[in-house]
């Protein structure tokens, strides 16, 4: 019943509607687009290097004759997958750790707070950049794990503080008196009651992860060639963006539109799920 109300609210929100439509179109472009284009992302056209957009190569070609359209869509697929995986992992981790810390208190809580403070002191970009040379040649899933491992801390702090108040609610106390084990209380009674926060957070984490991935790949710390992501493409394109604008414009434009639509959707979700808040 509540989900219906929330969904109706979401549909009425103009921002969220545009965001959702744009997002569906982008995902469709990323996954259906490659079948429509004339070239595969691994193809190299040795007759046209750095050619501007034309009827044959819709978005132009790169220095080594790759079709920009195919490569960019491939990069976007990767960025979307990374964004989704990182958001899921990070929010899940944040929910679990935050709820456990808030529920148990004591030293669990202290350790968590120290972790969050440390993250605040050392930007996660710095830590991932330091560790990343080790990942050269490893699977990109490691990169996802690393990104997720350094995104969850701040949300977990919010989850913790909300758990502190949920812990005193009657239904949680009732569960305690019924003798239900504590981990089960956390999973069954506390985390589901944080779902609106978690859904909002997961959505916004998607865009944060997409930007984070692109930022690290920009310096060569993320996705390694021959694989591509929007970050590696932007890095490549920004080097000679004045001379060959199509190398930069398409990946950068798609990245911005992707992040923007996810943010719009996330903001709309916040309004729909949590009408009281205004941040």
């Amino acid at each position: 019943m509540r989900s219906k109300v929330v969904f109706a609210r979401l549909l009425r929100n103009r921002q969220a509607r545009y965001g959702a439509i744009a997002l569906v179109l982008l995902v469709a472009l990323a996954y259906i687009g490659p079948y429509i284009g004339p070239y595969d992302w691994t193809d190299k056209d040795f007759l046209s290097f750095l050619s501007p957009p034309s009827a044959d190569h819709w978005w132009g070609t790169t220095t080594i004759g790759q079709d920009m359209y195919a490569v960019t869509l491939r990069g976007m697929q990767k960025s979307i997958i990374i964004g989704l995986l990182v958001a899921l992992l990070a929010t899940g981790l944040a929910a679990l750790v935050g709820a456990f810390a808030g529920y148990f208190g004591g030293w669990v809580d202290k350790v968590l707070m120290w972790g969050v403070d440390l993250l605040l002191v050392l930007p996660s970009f710095l830590i991932i950049a330091i560790v990343s040379p080790r990942l050269k040649g490893a699977s990109w899933l490691w990169f996802v794990a690393l990104l997720a491992a350094f995104t969850w801390m701040i949300t977990s702090r919010v989850v913790r503080s909300m758990t502190l108040s949920l812990r005193e609610r009657e239904y949680v106390l009732a569960a305690v008196y019924m003798g239900i084990p504590r981990w089960k209380i956390i999973l069954r009674h506390i985390v589901p009651n944080l779902s609106s926060l978690l859904i909002i957070d997961a959505t916004l984490n998607v865009s944060a992860a997409v930007i984070g991935e692109a930022a690290l790949s920009f310096f060569g710390f993320g996705i390694q060639p021959p694989d591509v992501s929007l970050g590696t493409l932007i890095a490549e394109g920004s080097r000679n963006a004045t001379g060959y604008p199509w190398l930069f414009a398409f990946p950068a434009g798609l990245l911005v539109v992707l992040v923007l639509s996810v943010n719009l959707l996330g903001d709309g979700l916040r309004d729909a799920l949590d009408p009281g808040s205004n941040s």
Partner: peptide, 14 residues
């Protein structure tokens, strides 16, 4: 809202 969706490296290049 638009500016927050543009990462620094894209903004700087633009």
């Amino acid at each position: 809202f638009v500016v927050m969706a543009i990462p620094v490296f894209v903004l700087a290049t633009l």
